[in-house]
Design a protein around this nucleic acid. Sequence first.
DNA 1: AAATTTTGCGTGTGCGCCCACACATTCAAA
DNA 2: TTTGAATGTGTGGGCGCACACGCAAAATTT
Lengths: 353, 353
Amino acid sequence: MGKTNIRIKDIAEKAGVSTGTVDRVLHKRGRVSPVAEKKVLEVIEALNYQPNFIARALGANKNYTLAVLMPDPALDPYWSAPQKGLEAAAADYNSHGITIEKFIYNQNEVQSFADTSERIFSKKFDGVIVAPLFFQQYLPFAKKCGEENLPLVLFNTNIKEVPKLSFIGQDSYQSGRLGAHLLSTGLRLDPGEILLLHLADDLENSAHLMRKEEGFKDYFEQQEGRQRILAVNIKSPINENLVNHLDALLDNYQDIKAFFVTTSKAYEVAAYLEGVGLQDKLLVGFDLIEENISYLNKGVIDFIINQNAYRQGYQSIESFVDFLVLKKEVNDLLYLPLDVITKENVKYYLPQA
Amino acid sequence: MGKTNIRIKDIAEKAGVSTGTVDRVLHKRGRVSPVAEKKVLEVIEALNYQPNFIARALGANKNYTLAVLMPDPALDPYWSAPQKGLEAAAADYNSHGITIEKFIYNQNEVQSFADTSERIFSKKFDGVIVAPLFFQQYLPFAKKCGEENLPLVLFNTNIKEVPKLSFIGQDSYQSGRLGAHLLSTGLRLDPGEILLLHLADDLENSAHLMRKEEGFKDYFEQQEGRQRILAVNIKSPINENLVNHLDALLDNYQDIKAFFVTTSKAYEVAAYLEGVGLQDKLLVGFDLIEENISYLNKGVIDFIINQNAYRQGYQSIESFVDFLVLKKEVNDLLYLPLDVITKENVKYYLPQA
DNA sequence: AAATTTTGCGTGTGCGCCCACACATTCAAA
DNA sequence: TTTGAATGTGTGGGCGCACACGCAAAATTT
């Protein structure tokens, strides 16, 4: 680089020591006299030294293997987005020596998480990326990682009780408010009932869904409040149960104007509405999965809130690159944007294959 | 890296040539016999060689200076966003040897573009990043760049008539449709007039604004069409002219329900509406500038469509990094997402200082 | 006081790639 | 034929950094 860029060598010269000493100071490896250390730090400060990350990455010349612990995309298509993000990032950071190994668990079985997570310790990894859907089972796993000095990056679901390197995800409460805003705009002159649907088997274990509900309700309470919110949870088998429930609900409450689905299964509701000719009702859901996109394009789903699942996966790897390879500081909490998706802008959000 | 990663040296060995020859083949520098070239290419194919971009960037060890030709952020705050993006990217890619030099023109004076652009040729640059607001003046400039072999990256405004490396921006037509969708959702049961406002001095020269109008109108024509669109252009001094125009319009058309501002000056309309107590009218505008954000948070502006101006700047630099340093292929057309911003998700879109 | 260990510091090598240079060979021009 | 240019190929140095190694001096231990 030009004369503007200062290198370790330059610092060494100015400080009257060797590059090795500067290196030791930079990496806090010890074996440096207080006098030399002070001098080096002063010069670093004075010259405003910025390490060359390119050279650092090349010089490090290490391989890092990361374990990825996440639910099975085959059982819930939502998870294919973060998986793609993880794989894309792994490919992009191949030059940095990053490799991933996936450990897939069954999100419908608590025990599967425990079993699969245990398998991670059979090999030596440099870090673990995990979507910890099960709070109770995650705790001992995280504890063990701590003991083995395995840094943890969480995505999708935040668990604050145990130390971690970083969490990457979205603010569930705020996403509830956002959904409320969208529906509120659509209903502004039109009071009535809004149906909030959790389509999840383990609502008890899903704190983030409850956070969405809170945000959603809070928003309307702070408005004039002409809308009434009905919150309902429907478990699997969804397609059967949904029809029964919705038939009954629409029968009881004539004034249901809109639907808010807190999970990625808005397409199930869309299918129902289309079936009974109610596709004009407002419907807002989450996540850019194929089924939802299809109903979005048909106009049955009005808005999709995108939680950037792909980005979550990609960013998880990047956090580790920053930490392991570049030794940058990493933020322990990163909220990704909550994108509002419509038929008109959806194409810009799909990861280009 | 591990034994999995193959290097130029490995290719050279397998192909029975030296690394220099492989290098020549990789960079198409010529001076390679057809026989050797064929053999090398075969080995590259067979081993699925992936260049190590880290090493490539380091080894290149070149400095690249890019000229940036853009309007003055002091005259229109919109331009501070791409400027920040450009500066941030320049800082991030400092290690790659990238430096930028800015050439700021006055977007209100055609001649200023011509004069400023001319100054770029006084020095040797490796590339030019330009927001070409003036079609007529851009053409000769681009021609001259072509003659001097200066690669061009455009952002914000696309001009297809002359060759370029890449365009980074948004799809104006589609952003018009998106705005229409947002208003349409808010007005679904409520026919009436919608006021489409161009707040721009040189509408004639601003093809992208007309594209927005087209998209907006097309959307409503394809709907049932109970809304009527009134398109109006208001020139500076905006604050004066706006009041007069809007007073008159609201007087003539009692049924105006919503406003769509195609430029970044929705805040002017917001100020007016707030002043006359009509803050409940729907208002959709463009761009995350401070003034707009303020009215968004107050609830006067309902949606802002974000054209990712910051990202446009950042990405412009990245295109050049890919092209100059990493010798990757670069896409000649990159549409950035059209983000829908509300009070609830705005904070995730602001570039963290 | 001798034998160790610890501390402090410098040197050297390698990461994978780029590119300048040197050399050999071939081919065309004088 | 002689000269020169064009073509084909290999070698070596360097980018900035990380890290292993080696050696001296100081601090401990025996």
